[in-house]
Amino acid sequence: MQPSLREDYLEAVQLFSNKNARFPLTEELAAALSKPVPAVRSDIEKLVSGGDVIIVAEGSITLTAQGKQTGTCVMKKHETLQCFLSEILGMDSHRASDEACTLEHTVSDETIDRLGKLIGTHEHHRHQEKGKHRTPAGERACKGETDEYCESPGISDFSEGDEVVIQCIHGRACAQRLLDLGLVPGEHATIKRKLSNGALVVQVKGCDVAVSPEIASAIGVERLP
């Protein structure tokens, strides 16, 4: 059995178990991989003899420690590659996924490590924004800013009348318009109005700018000393 085929199987089993909190039956695995059931069954037998999986009583394909390690590792590689291809290189997410499927088998651990560090700032930001309702969770897997390291609290944490200094803008989509309106790092801003839902009017450069709560939480600021 080819190593790439083995990795594909283990990855698929791992993915299935992550998603459904149980291990797949042969039919389910075949469906997930879009392969005929008999072919999958014979491949599974090879995996069993290789010590990657065991078939438990109800017929579900259960990963052994060895199988689990490989499966998780390939899955992570896939995620990292897909994230890199779609977010940093700007590829369409489907094509990125397809491409990642091919690359995941040959890429070295070091490359993945370095890519992971490069994208690591994503993770960092996601962690920071935890608890703040921004985009739906599913959408967020790879979203976030690539090249910012700002740890300042969002302007939404301040209250009406506060004067602040803008430190950074997270998130790429809304950044440009905010920058154009003068919300750039180093700029002084006054919170002119804050509604109960967190929508703000921020005065900057003598102009009033109204922003939604989720945009406000993307504006990192410090209190004016």
């Binding site: 985009t135 959408e139 989509a173 809304c174 318009r177 905010l178 309106l181 929508a199 009017v201 102009c207 009033d208 700018v209 109204a210 922003v211 939604s212 709560p213 989720e214 945009i215």
Partner: peptide, 10 residues
């Protein structure tokens, strides 16, 4: 699709 908040100059 994704939601995009409001950024409006008063």
């Amino acid at each position: 699709g994704e939601q995009f908040g409001m950024i409006v100059e008063m």
